[in-house]
């Protein structure tokens, strides 16, 4: 039963995430964090981090991760199958039409309207992640509760990415190491 739910959930993710990569992120967040509460926002952010550092698409990684957590290997298989099935049907259908007619005007037209919305939804998911990292949750936003170290790290990372065009994986690793280093500092000075 739970496997069926996982399958159905990730079927929706697979069906509605246009644009690849980050585009699936808001949908996974909606299904896995908001609707079903299978992962906390913090766990979801960890999952995106792990996805960045391992090969494989975010959607497949999430399906496997959530599936295993909720219902073991059968859950992972159900979720992953659900995630791939829509693409399977739709890609083969378009490929068939393309091999026959060799034109894709309508498709390109529809995508042109979808792309701006995808950017907006990725932005929205990114904001949730930042809020989770810095304050814990939306309800806890206040000046006193702000994790200033993470705010500074976030800004430094932006500069490294935009000004110095540094590799995103390297930037993330540096941010992690920097945070751990800062956390260890008082311990070193005390002992």
């Amino acid at each position: 039963m739970i496997c069926l739910e996982l399958f159905w959930c990730f079927l929706k993710v697979g069906l509605f995430s246009f644009g690849g990569g980050y585009a699936s992120m808001p949908l996974i967040q909606e299904q896995v964090v908001s609707s079903h509460g299978w992962l906390s926002m913090g766990e979801f952010t960890d999952l995106v981090t792990i996805s960045q550092m391992t090969p494989g698409p975010i959607a497949i990684n999430s399906a496997t991760f959530v599936g295993i957590k909720i219902a073991g290997i059968p859950g992972a298989l159900a979720a992953t199958t659900g995630c791939i099935l829509p693409a399977c049907v739709i890609v083969m259908l378009i490929a068939k039409l393309y091999l026959k007619y060799r034109s894709m005007n309508m498709l390109q037209g529809i995508l042109a309207s979808l792309r701006p919305a995808v950017v907006a939804m990725i932005a929205s998911a990114g904001i949730s992640m930042l809020i989770t990292a810095v304050w814990g949750s939306v309800e806890q936003i206040s000046l006193g509760n702000t994790d200033w170290i993470l705010v500074v790290l976030f800004l430094v990372c932006i500069v490294l990415l935009r000004r110095f065009k540094m590799n995103p994986i390297l930037v993330m690793v540096l941010a992690g190491v920097a945070k751990a280093g800062i956390a260890l500092m008082p311990k070193i000075f005390v002992t």
Partner: peptide
């Protein structure tokens, strides 16, 4: 935790 800030920056 540090990497969460990094991922948010990558997405930004």
């Amino acid at each position: 935790e540090g990497m969460q800030a990094g991922v948010a920056a990558v997405i930004a």
